[in-house]
Design a binder for these strands. Structure first.
Lengths: 337, 337
DNA sequence: CTGCAAGCTGTAATCGATTTCAGGAACCTG
DNA sequence: CAGGTTCCTGAAATCGATTACAGCTTGCAG
């Protein structure tokens, strides 16, 4: 009565053929005669055989797995992106492994352990990983960088035009009539933060508006730093009338704190965010922001990686997805109302 | 000049020992003399040897991987849970694989393919998977259910007390003086939705308040169904003064739509949500809700699974984590203001 | 000095598939 | 009918580790 896991050789025995034939019947049916195929199918059904993936993987020298390296899995920003990645990978028969590169006690050189026996491909969402652990190397699986990137690492990038997004935001505020525009950037180490700050400066310049370093407050993308930003803003005697925040989280923190201190948004200060994360159209006032196509970013990253794994030919070095300004109610003409 | 991936036999050759010794030196150093250990270490360093996981997995008959079956990965509700899972698994040397059971074109019998050669354990977050695909079976890896569960499947459950959460919410509204309390539940097929609806009824009963079926509106957890709920609520001539929504998403949708139609929250209607997802303390009014300890749920699920995989002894059949009422500004005495 | 245990190491089997190579049968072709 | 294809199949090598088993040293007790 005890059960045991059937092996390919059990199927072969019952079907009266060799294991080679069973293997072919299952993975390359064209190579096998119709009649043998039928016999094998019957034997498979009878035994309830299922393939042992470890054995196949060893023989074929691949894992059918792709690792996504995510900085802080707890950040809901990544959920939709990972869903896009998952959809494409599943379709192609690959498994999605997720590694949180920012968990407590995570080895900073985690990427070093990701060789070809662990994954067939890597999607790197963390721009702060040491580049020497990811350098092209025959031992290392192909990789793409998505959202963030590592400056001195040559690999396909899937990203949005962060600079253009920032410029859209600033241009929007300028068009509303704001001449005093401040910026709450992300952490200086982060490439996205730098790109968005650069875009902010460029558009201010293009609009002929002042670029004042005291209006560039310290920020780190977090809700809390948004709150601190609001306090800093309040503390100034010579305040900007509009703030462009490099993340929606900060924008929410900023608005919440400003309101708590008795300021009205957008009457006293206009706020624009970045990302269009869930629910920001439900805060009051609904947040004007720059939308990132998160699902598409995930899809595109997976697709580029698949083509990279398939032929290793020259892949598109950069995929830049469009951003979009979404105007809601946190931005208005200065002094309005 | 061409590189090749070093094998254990290359290390053995260079160290002048057998592959068995190298294997032991690396995984059970106690069995090897100090001197040999040193030689092997040197040879490993010289060759840059790294283990081939596929080979080890085949031999040891395990994958060092755990699959999380998530209904709709795009739902940010799961991000913090997965982060908790990841933290515990990583610590224990396991990989986290994520499968979206609700993606377009996903095989509804996906769970059937998850045998021991694919994963050493399963964490099921989806209560709607067919139970026959998950029944205990020597071919199938051990499994735990988290958040949701499958009624007729016996497996450890890690969950919150949904009924108690619902009762907290209703009791809070009753205490504020509401006598006309409605409910916006999740989809009837969902166990969480049923548990929360049951809790709602029980507490209404306990408080001596009416349980009116016309005040139990149709809902499905989504933002949109929250909006529809608000429209349904508005359409009633005999409205409840408070609504308990079975998810924060619905609560946000409800509040947004109600406000858009000219009603004030909480003056015209009090709203309580469930989940305490990110940013609901930043909507206006800040949402009163039931907090789920999402990170802890993930951690606990991973821990129970690990112990299940380790000894297969009798595991704790149910882990119930505490919920907490978080009072913010979307609930107030009826007619206040 | 013999016998036995303890400690270390190597040989070879093993995990369970895929795939190369070779061979047999059937079918053409000239 | 000889020679060449084409089609199908099986034997055996292979992927790269772990580990059961056995053998060799060495040390110690009797």
């Amino acid at each position: 009565m005890e059960r045991f896991t059937p092996r390919i050789r059990d199927v072969a025995r019952i079907a009266g053929v060799s294991t080679a034939t069973v293997s072919r019947a299952l993975s390359k049916p064209d190579l096998v005669s119709a009649e043998t195929l039928e016999t094998v199918r019957a034997a498979v059904a009878e035994t309830g055989y299922t393939i042992n993936h470890a054995a196949r993987n060893l023989r074929q020298q691949r894992t059918m797995g792709v690792v996504a390296l995510v900085p802080n899995l707890a950040n809901p920003f990544f959920s939709r992106i990972l869903a896009g990645v998952s959809a494409v990978l599943t379709q192609a028969g690959y498994n999605l492994l997720v590694v949180d590169t920012a968990g407590p006690g995570v080895d900073p050189h985690i990427a070093r352990t990701l060789d070809r026996s662990r994954a067939d491909g890597l999607i790197v969402f963390d721009g702060l990983l040491p580049s020497e652990d990811l350098r092209p190397d025959p031992l290392r699986p192909p990789l793409v960088m998505a959202c963030e990137w590592i400056e001195d690492l040559s690999a396909p990038r899937i990203r949005i035009d962060n600079e253009a997004g920032a410029r859209l935001a600033v241009a929007h505020l300028a068009q509303l009539g704001h001449a005093r525009i401040g910026h709450l950037p992300g952490p200086a180490a982060n490439v996205l933060a730098r790109a968005r700050a650069d875009g902010t400066r460029k558009e201010l310049l293009a609009q002929g508006l002042p670029i004042r370093s005291d209006w560039f407050l310290p920020g780190d993308f977090s809700l809390d730093s948004g709150r601190r930003g609001a306090r800093d803003w309040i503390a100034m005697q010579d305040r900007p009338t509009a703030m462009f925040c490099a993340s929606d989280q900060m924008a929410c923190g900023f608005i919440g704190e400003a309101q708590r201190r008795g300021f009205r948004v957008p009457q006293d200060v206009s706020v624009v965010g970045f990302d269009n994360i869930d629910l920001v159209d439900h805060i009051t006032p609904a947040l004007t922001t720059i939308r990132q196509p998160r699902w598409s970013i995930g899809e595109a990253a997976a697709q580029v990686l698949l083509s990279l794994m398939a032929d290793a030919g020259a892949p598109p070095p950069d995929t830049v997805l469009p951003v979009e300004l979404i105007i809601r109610h946190s931005s208005a003409a200065p002094g309005a109302g």
